[in-house]
């Protein structure tokens, strides 16, 4: 998993829950990286799972909720760090439509070894379907990112999650529609 997810996560924890909590969850987890993350590195995704579950223990907030919130935050960070991806789109669905064929293509240029999830998108009259496939259980992160996109474009969107995952592989169909 790319380093940016880890470094942004730690920063968000520091910001929302304080340096102590951040330090504590790092100390309590058994992390091969010892919690020293950089955006350009690549780390085992189970480190994030450990960190999230420790945070959940300490804050008594369900892990899924934490990850969803983190996803929303990540979207804002992406806007700040990679504004070029948001330049030629003016709505949430159009943006989500570019993830697979534009954003991931650019990521792959920088990190040819990155194992990215796939986001097949199909737009319909009322909304769109996004099919998330990944070898890692982070559909909640995807949910947060979608939610964050809607917020960024200032749109009110319903997100339905149909989890069809099996064999430890994520397969989730997101059905998005505009409210009202």
């Amino acid at each position: 998993m790319k380093g940016i997810v880890f470094s942004e996560f730690i920063e968000l924890v520091e910001e929302k829950f304080g340096l102590d909590i951040a330090d504590t969850i790092i100390e309590e987890s058994d992390l091969p990286s010892q919690g020293a993350y950089t955006q350009v590195g690549t780390y085992d995704h189970t480190e994030l799972i450990q960190l999230v579950s420790k945070l959940s223990e300490h804050t008594e907030i369900p892990a899924d909720d934490l990850v969803k919130t983190f996803g929303e935050h990540m979207l804002q960070r992406f806007v700040a760090l990679y504004p070029q991806f948001f330049e030629n789109v003016d709505n949430c669905f159009d943006f989500l439509d570019t993830i697979e064929n534009k954003v991931h293509v650019e990521v792959q240029k920088l990190y040819p070894e990155a194992e990215l999830p796939s986001f097949d998108s199909m737009k319909s009259e009322n909304g769109m379907q996004l099919i998330y496939r990944s070898n890692r259980p982070f559909s909640a992160l995807a949910y947060g990112l979608i939610r964050g996109s809607a917020t960024y474009f200032n749109e009110d969107i319903d997100i339905e999650m149909d989890d069809q995952s099996s064999d430890g592989k994520s397969f989730v169909v997101f059905t998005l529609s505009h409210k009202n």
Binding site: T38, Q39, V40, L81, K109, L110, Y111
Partner: peptide, 15 residues
């Protein structure tokens, strides 16, 4: 963070 961005932009140039 600067170093990370620098690294990414260099990576892109390299690519």
């Amino acid at each position: 963070k600067d170093a990370e961005q620098l690294l990414e932009s260099k990576s892109l140039q390299l690519y």
